[in-house]
């Protein structure tokens, strides 16, 4: 996948994430996964695969944490 052509991207606050995995399940293009590493709380935080985000925002809405997920969209010039 070519990151430069993606419509969006996901930023995850790895210390706010509790690793519930709802975003991973919900993501239509399936571009999220749980990290193999642990965050400071001891959870496996979600992480963005780095490409393929459509900026649909579904992961944001299924995430129970206020700022766990930020969804960005490429601006049209």
């Amino acid at each position: 996948m070519d990151e430069a052509r993606d419509r969006g991207a996901v930023a995850i606050d790895r210390d706010e994430c509790k690793g519930c995995g709802l975003c991973v399940e919900a993501c239509p293009p399936r571009v999220l996964r749980l990290s193999g590493e642990l965050n400071h709380c001891g959870y496996h935080p979600a992480e963005y695969l780095g490409a393929g985000c459509t900026a649909c925002g579904i992961c944001y809405y299924v995430c129970p944490e206020p700022g766990g997920i930020t969804v960005l969209r490429r601006q049209v010039a």
């Binding site: 969006g8 930023a11 969804v71 490429r74 010039a77």
Partner: peptide, 11 residues
């Protein structure tokens, strides 16, 4: 991604 100036927060 958030470092890319062309990206804006939508959610």
């Amino acid at each position: 991604a958030s470092d890319t100036p062309a990206m804006a927060v939508v959610h």
